[in-house]
Write a protein that binds this DNA or RNA. Structure first.
Length: 396
DNA sequence: TCTGGGGTCCTAGGACCC
DNA sequence: TCTGGGGTCCTAGGACCC
């Protein structure tokens, strides 16, 4: 199984681990007993590896499909509108096979006329690998009926805990029940337009478009629990500077600039006897001109951290959130401010290039600290087999 | 002792405008 | 006795996703 950042929660399990009754998203330390007794293999998160393998899978799919929307690290939507319906099944089988052959990553495929239905199909294909060969196409009404009656409301994409509880009160238990509800009912009882969309999607009427992959994020955040608690202002500033630098890097990657910088800190009172009762504070600043320069963003973030720090508290987490994001090619300059020196942008470009081609954090700002006592725990990380020369697989 | 990180979308309510 | 109508924009909070 695989843990979340800081080795906190369990976020991924093999079938064997599930069979032991280890629950999803449960705290790692609470499951240590079963883990040790059953010799469960445990790994810290390893985003270098996951990100790289994810890219390989997506690029494989792009070879055979012009329109791939990457939805998350392990999921994507392909637009097959142009494909004749009698070829869908063969195509899906082929895509599954070629992905596994080229990357070694097993995948399951669901095909239907809306995103929500294809998620239903995908889930069933994944659950019943023997029966479906990992591929399920929902075309005729009988197939759709079967799939929807086998899907509980809480397993529908877009129905969370709150929604599921409400639906049960109305005696709606599976996706077929929900599909047959009226839209005006959904408008009043199921979150307004969100519920209406959901019902339409279940009825095969597309309401959730394919997303343009060039759209830029409206908010960029870097937030982390500390590996060890932080007590001093200088360490807090350091961590916040480091997070700000990361956020600025993400901003530049999507060629944007941000005007609003928000910093938050989460603490436990050092002498509190209450168990896990954190408090938090936040502050934000509006820059005169949108920027993506680490120098500017990190300095501002550090200043905010300074304001938020109080002596005597035990800090356990901090974060930097950038918003008010605009494309960097259309930044509105400020009449009363000096424009940024032209070579600063070039400096950012060089730093980003070095860090992405060598290893991240090869070049950093000193304000982010050297020792980094607060760095997150990752005690059981697997090797970054595909992105680091010194961690390549060794074959004997 | 110990429970992650990073997003999006929608709604209600308040402030404000003419 | 009695005080309009029609908007926009912003923010906080909730729900949801992986």
């Amino acid at each position: 199984m695989v843990l979340s950042n800081n080795d906190g929660c369990i976020v991924s399990r093999t079938d064997e681990a599930k069979a032991l009754g280890i629950r999803m998203a449960g705290p790692y330390y609470q499951n240590k007993k079963e883990i040790l007794e059953n010799e469960v293999a445990v790994f810290s998160s390893n985003y270098h590896l996951y990100g790289d393998m994810s890219n390989r899978v997506m690029n494989t799919l792009r070879v055979y499909c012009p329109y791939v929307e990457v939805y998350s690290v392990d999921e994507c939507f392909l637009d097959l509108t142009e494909m004749p319906s009698d070829q869908l099944y063969e195509y899906a089988l082929f895509m599954k096979a070629i992905t596994e052959q080229w990357t070694g990553i097993p995948v399951s495929v669901g095909v239907a006329s809306t995103k929500t239905l294809s998620k239903v199909a995908n889930r069933l294909a994944k659950k019943d690998k023997q029966g479906t060969q990992g591929v399920l196409v929902l075309q005729d009404s009988q197939q759709i009926y079967d799939a929807l009656t086998r899907t509980k409301v809480e397993d529908i994409w877009g129905v969370g805990m709150a929604g599921a509880q409400k639906l049960h009160l109305f005696n709606i238990h599976n996706a077929w029940d929900l599909r047959n509800m009226r839209e005006d009912w959904a408008r009043t009882h199921l979150g307004g337009v969100v519920g209406v969309r959901l019902i339409k999607e279940l009825n095969g009427i597309p309401c959730i478009d394919m997303k343009d992959q060039r759209t830029r994020k409206k908010m960029i955040a870097t937030t982390r629990m500390f590996g060890k608690p932080v007590y001093t202002g200088s360490e807090l500033r350091e961590a916040v500077s480091a997070y700000a630098a990361r956020a600025a890097e993400k901003l530049r990657r999507q060629q944007s600039a941000a005007r609003c910088i928000r910093v938050f800190v989460v603490y436990n009172d050092r002498h509190s006897y209450e168990r896990y009762q954190p408090g938090s504070r936040s502050a934000h600043a509006q820059l005169p001109t949108a920027t993506s320069l680490t120098q500017v963003i990190a300095a501002e973030a550090a200043r905010l951290a300074e304001c938020l720090y109080t002596d005597g508290k035990k800090y356990i987490k901090a974060g930097v959130i950038l918003s008010d994001i605009v494309p960097c090619e259309s930044v509105q300059y400020n009449l009363f401010e000096e424009p940024e020196p032209p070579n600063w942008r070039e400096l950012m470009r060089v730093i980003d290039n070095v860090n992405s081609s060598m290893q991240s954090d090869m070049l950093t700002f000193a304000s982010a600290g050297i020792k980094k006592n607060w760095k997150m725990r990752q005690e059981m990380r697997s090797k970054r087999f595909t992105t680091r020369w010194d961690e390549l697989c060794i074959v004997r």
